[in-house]
Amino acid sequence: MNTDIAIAILATAITAGTPIMYAALGEILAERAGILNLGVEGMMLVGAVSGFILALHTSNPWAGLLLAMLAGGFMALIHAFLTITLKANQVVSGLALTLFGTGLAGYIGKSYVGIRLPESFRAVPVPVLSDIPIIGPVLFNHDPLVYISYFIVPALWFLVFRTRAGLNLRAVGENPAAADSVGINVFRTRYIYVIAGGMLAGIGGAYLSLHYVPVWVENMTAGRGWIAVALVIFATWNPANAIWGAYLFGGLDALGLRLQTLNVTVSPYFLKMLPYIFTVLVLILVTRRNMLSRRGSPKALGLPYDREER
């Protein structure tokens, strides 16, 4: 019985953590390029609603997923244009993007509220692997988007830390002037990663509307975009850490609910606070060990780059 509960909590942690993880991975890319995008919540919602609408009309969740990525990318493009080309304040633009995205998603989704999706992403147990005791039901009895995330995380880690493109990306985020001087196109790099980040946020939103709760309801992300922003710091801008952080943050929710049926009561407000406490603790740790230069935030994060001010 106890292992059953443990398995259920771990499996729920993965499903609850996956949408946050996608969004956080996207934000890691954008922030590695030096652009802070606080519009994650807005991009997720627009991804969720547009993916839902197309999936409803085509009866194909994959088509919906594709549109969710494009929609998330488009939202990010607005942020990129404002902050990279026009050099607007990134915090202001990001917050505006969240407000805009929340409103826009509510507006276009108005006539789709409460409709059931005929075809959604469903759990597909992986043959053989899902039969392994404990590990099988925890890791290999999920929907395709979870399996995709198993590949995306190492791929992004490899991209950021082991490829030339990743080196360029980090250079742009650390010191755009130096990157520019060695011939890296700072503007193009930033555009690419901000948009890619938006696409991942779009997937995060679509995970909710195309799989977890396959209906569209306004504000269905319920603040998960902000958890994703905190997760980026928790993960110290490293895609590989995002996976643990996402499962931890997702697992906390699941744990709190499960404790109730076991007659153990933990304050839900305390549990809701924990992700942010962890984030602050991680910030303190990395600063104290003076590792900011190696593991901490990209140096040029939040600063617009202007060639003439070089």
């Binding site: 609850a16 909710l208 977890y212 709760v213 209906v215 504000n219 269905m220 319920a222 998960r224 929710d253």
Partner: peptide
């Protein structure tokens, strides 16, 4: 209102 937590 939080569909994800409701489902969990």
């Amino acid at each position: 209102f939080d569909p994800t937590v409701e489902k969990q």
